[in-house]
């Protein structure tokens, strides 16, 4: 398949643009998405091209952005609502969890909610405590919602298309640090990354590293370094936290018998907790070592750069964890 090397920002922009061209029901709404060209420039030039009917600047009203997007989706439109960053989605958590995720079930299938909520996520930019979160596991806790978190440009492109074309509500988070990173993006406008399908980013036989979003970058760097020492890591990029592709994780684990989970999230009640629990429930006989988690430190993030970075995972912490599970 032919492809071009573009940034994740441009890949998302292209995916959204093409989906809006393809389906008139798709429209974007959110703070600063129009005249300002998008806080992260994913919606740049869209107001000029598609006009105010399809590109709706909203007030700073996260509850209403979430709720109105749910209502419009129930009506039959396919909103792509932007939360400027995931931190502000906390104000919309009721619209997302109590409404978007439950309306289909609660009314026994009478309504569907074909909605995508995009939110920029992640930390490590001295954004400070209130603006530094990767709370995706909180959202992935709830049945009725899908949660997608791409780690690179190509996946971002195919995952956003899958999310927009699906009839279920999707929380789609975009790691800010990954926006500028280039990667190959297929030229095919129907390139889709199936919802709930993980991807093995690097095969290996010694240790399974399970990760998503920016954690994949740290994991791959660690795997490169470890390969020089003769340790072969298999890096599983989950891509979607819901539905969680446990089959791929279990298959890898049954081969390597050891696992490290790498996440930008806080450690308590996190993705790491979930994967570790599921592996021990399903693959106990294959376990050769305790499962290790590499997460952010369990503190609110500070401003000062050095201590901020000290609280975050990186490839060195991944390398140390892999060595630990190898004993």
């Amino acid at each position: 398949m032919s492809s071009k090397n573009i940034s994740m920002r441009d890949a998302l922009h292209r995916a959204l643009w093409e989906e809006m061209e393809r389906d008139e029901r798709v429209f974007v709404m959110g703070e600063e998405v129009g005249k300002w060209n998008g806080t992260h420039k994913v919606t740049r030039d869209m107001l000029d091209h598609f006009g105010p009917r399809r590109v709706k600047d909203t007030p700073i009203s996260e509850m209403a952005i979430g709720g109105a997007a749910v209502g419009a989706a129930m009506y039959g439109l396919r909103p792509v609502a932007e939360m400027m960053t995931i931190n502000f989605a906390f104000l919309a958590i009721d619209a997302i969890i109590n409404h978007a995720a439950k309306v289909h079930y609660m009314f026994n299938g009478q309504f569907t909610v074909p909605l995508v909520i995009r939110a920029a996520t992640g930390w490590g930019m001295q954004a400070t405590a209130t603006h530094s979160h990767m709370p995706e596991p909180i959202f992935a806790h709830f049945p009725g919602l899908y949660v997608g978190c791409p780690s690179n440009a190509g996946d971002a492109y195919g995952m956003l298309k899958a999310a927009i074309r699906d009839d279920n509500p999707v929380l789609f988070t975009e790691t800010i640090a990954l926006y500028p990173k280039p990667g190959p993006v297929p030229d095919d406008p129907d390139y889709i990354v199936p919802i709930g399908k993980a991807d093995i980013k690097r095969p290996g036989k010694d240790v399974t590293i399970v990760s998503f979003a920016r954690g994949v970058e740290w994991s791959l760097k660690a795997a490169d370094a470890l390969a020089k020492e003769g340790i072969e890591c298999e890096v599983v990029d989950l891509r979607w936290l819901r539905p969680l592709d446990t089959a791929t994780v279990f298959e890898s684990f049954r081969k390597t018998n050891r696992c490290v989970i790498v996440e930008e999230c806080l450690p308590h009640y996190s993705l790491g907790s979930e994967i570790a629990a599921q592996i021990q429930e399903n693959c106990f006989d294959y376990m050769d070592a305790p499962i290790k988690r590499v997460s952010a430190m369990d503190v609110p993030l500070p401003f000062a750069k050095d201590i901020e970075l000290a609280a975050l995972p990186d490839e060195h912490k991944v390398i140390a964890a892999v060595k630990e599970v190898l004993g």
Binding site: G67, A68, A69, G71, L77, H99
Partner: peptide, 24 residues
């Protein structure tokens, strides 16, 4: 379009339904 049990929760849904009606 339903009864909703979170106080106020249905109000932005109404905004969204009206947006749909206008959009179409």
């Amino acid at each position: 379009w339903g009864g909703y049990a979170i106080v106020g929760g249905h109000l932005p849904l109404a905004t969204g339904l009206a947006l749909g009606a206008r959009y179409n």
